[in-house]
Design a protein around this nucleic acid. Structure first.
Length: 587
RNA sequence: GACCCCGUAGCUCAACCGGAUAGAGCACCUGCCUUCUAAGCAGGGGGUUGCGUGUUCGAGUCACGCCGGGGUCGCCA
């Protein structure tokens, strides 16, 4: 089913075509002047510019044709040549009823038959997740849900950071502090112990020590570089040790993602691309894309049209080790082979934009990305109240797990203040607090423009007033409560119809969903989903305030309003689900 | 120095392909709870869209030049 706006645009397009003008001019949009109209068409202005004609005269001809449409109640000309439209309630009701009968039909389906890979999360071995991973996880998860809803076949990949210098740093650190472990014997001493010599907690201590040691002591950095190269070259003891690092970390990471409600299809990492690297390098050398330069193997990616200096992508460092650009490139080969995607999204910090530009250029130039479009989805940083990157009070990195615990506690406090969920069983109350806390964090993150930085302010995010996750949960729960009571009283929901301005506005909002999802997809912009669902919830609140549903004595009207409520609830829940936000049954 | 991103109400942010009177939320002010959850609703004040020049019938949006903030610039990720 095409959307209301698409239908209107097609109708207007036909009108333009009938006047010998381009049908694209018939693009309809929601009116900027809700006091004057529901929809508007600016095509007559553009047509007049092209044809050097009078815009109002063209507009009048188009409007006359539009008035013939059964959709259109009014078509008026205003200003320099805007065409203002109001639709018939009958047309709105008919479409509303269709959506109510088949909710799936309202989804735009832009991605049918297309495959996408969404690469996000990007946690690292031996490091707990911190706020830095928050945005990638939340935005990436939202995008994978959005693309799926819009018909794409999506594969998400956590893409672990598990193959660079930090691995060598860890090995060197452990070699220094526990040299008697069997892994450091240059000879192959396999089988190595099944039991990991370190736990996740050990690693969290070990890594900062290792990083600090490398910073202070050039010899240690050199040792770490050597260990990295040897690991990548396949030294058995190091590989065995690496397996332990990897497994110990994965357990903790899965706990973190689970508590955020984020799920990946694949748990691959940089290391998975490693087996593909030798052949890739051979090919790139043979085909003349890669050559040695200053001791390193590079792929130049500068282009004629560049206005800035674009450094080459380094495949092999002078010590023979690979960099993450190398694994990123090889990972593309893996993804093309295993999924044949049309699109790969990389949800990574905006600061890495240059890196991705290098990788994408190299991939395109060498032809190894095939038909896949590669796109960096950058985002801004999460800052503390001082505008600097978010830290704990002690100045350390704030862990994601602790962050969620804080948000849950804050949400629980708010529930208590409002006297909500007071008499619920403790488990349910705890579940609600968790859901509210997570909703607060996610919504606050997603509602911002992706590329701008934002200030993390838990007090503000967990507020129940205004444009927040908890407000939306509350709005949905209120509707659930009505529907539950209606059911208890034996009132069934019926086909929605329109008898008031509030209902008309709500109907128009509900029917605007496909455009919201399409635009959010095209611009990879979760904040547009946030805006849409917030406006929808506000529209429902107006309707709710104005019309008392359960006490309505006209049974047909009551049923219609219940139907409208049920439809609104379904849509709010669906939109929140795209944001990764759950709605409790009651609050 | 070069390049990228950002600059919109006191604060946090919107504004689709260049369109009408630049919109929300918070905060502030005024109303509205003996009926479905007031975490709500109705209304009000608050703007030289960082500055300037240009293109256009029309610029927050496009071009150029400044100013301010952040970021990146060959072997970290």
């Amino acid at each position: 089913m095409s959307s209301l706006l698409a239908e209107l645009s097609a109708t207007a397009g036909a009108a333009f075509a009938a006047e010998g003008l381009a049908p694209e001019l018939g693009q309809i949009q929601v009116s900027d002047r809700p006091d004057l109209a529901q929809f508007q068409c600016n095509g007559a202005l553009a047509a007049a510019k092209l044809a050097k004609a009078n815009p109002r005269a063209i507009a009048e001809k188009i409007a006359a044709r539009l008035r013939q449409s059964p959709l259109v109640a009014e078509a008026a000309i205003a200003g320099p040549g805007f065409i203002n439209l109001k639709l018939t309630d009958g047309a709105l009701e008919e479409r509303l009823q269709r959506v109510a009968a088949a909710p799936e039909s309202a989804l735009p389906g832009n991605g049918k038959g297309k495959r996408a890979i969404v690469d996000f999360g990007g946690p690292n071995i031996a490091k707990p997740m911190h706020v830095g991973h928050l945005r990638s996880s939340i935005i990436g998860d939202c995008l994978q849900r959005l693309l799926r809803a819009n018909g794409w076949t999506v594969t998400s990949d956590v893409h672990l950071g598990d193959w660079g210098l930090p691995m060598g740093q860890l090995i060197a650190e452990l070699a220094a502090s526990r040299p008697t472990l069997p892994y450091f014997d240059a000879a192959d001493r396999s089988p190595y112990p099944d039991e990991s010599p370190v736990t996740m907690d050990d690693l969290e201590v070990l890594y900062p020590k290792a990083a600090a040691a490398c910073k202070e002591d050039p010899a240690r950095l050199e040792a770490a570089r050597l260990a990295t190269a040897e690991l990548q070259a396949g030294r058995p003891g190091y590989r065995a040790l690496w397996e332990h690092f990897h497994d110990a970390t994965a357990v903790g990471l899965k706990r973190e993602f689970a508590s955020l409600g984020v799920v990946f299809d694949e748990w691959k990492g940089e290391s998975d691309a490693d087996p593909l690297i030798p052949a890739m390098i051979e090919r790139l050398k043979e085909q003349g894309f890669a050559h040695m330069d200053e001791g390193a193997l590079i792929v130049p990616v500068a282009e004629e049209s560049d206005t800035k200096e674009v450094p080459p992508l380094i495949l092999l460092k002078s010590d023979g080790a690979v960099l993450y650009g190398t694994t990123d490139l090889a990972t593309i080969i893996d993804r093309i082979q295993s999924h044949d995607p049309n699109l790969i999204l990389y949800v990574v910090d905006q600061r890495q934009h240059n890196h991705f530009e290098q990788v994408f250029r190299a991939a395109k130039k060498t032809g190894l990305s095939g038909k896949a479009e590669l796109e960096h989805i950058g985002y801004g940083t999460v800052n503390g109240p001082d505008g600097k990157p978010f830290k704990t009070r002690a100045g350390g990195v704030m862990k994601l797990y602790d962050l969620i615990a804080m948000a849950t506690a804050e949400a629980d406090k708010r529930l208590a203040e409002a006297g909500l969920a007071a008499d619920y069983p403790p488990e349910e109350r705890a579940r609600i607090a968790k859901a509210v806390g997570v909703a607060a964090i996610k919504f606050a993150d997603l509602v911002n423009n992706r590329v701008s930085n934002y200030i993390f302010d838990l007090e503000r995010f967990t507020r129940f007033e205004g444009k927040t996750g908890p407000y939306l949960q509350y709005a949905a729960v209120r509707i659930k409560s009505i529907l539950k009571k209606a059911q208890a009283e034996g009132h069934a929901a019926g086909a929605p119809f329109i008898r008031s301005e509030e209902e008309r506005q709500l109907a128009l909002q509900l029917l605007a969903m496909p455009e919201a999802l399409t635009l959010a997809e095209n611009r990879r912009a979760p904040n547009l989903i946030c805006d849409y669902v917030f406006t929808l919830a506000q529209g429902f609140s107006r309707f709710y305030t104005e019309h008392h549903i359960l006490s309505e004595s006209d049974a047909a009207l009551r049923a219609a309003r219940l139907g409208l409520s049920a439809l609104t609830l379904a849509q709010i829940e669906r939109m929140l689900a795209l944001l990764g936000i759950e709605v409790p049954d009651r609050m």
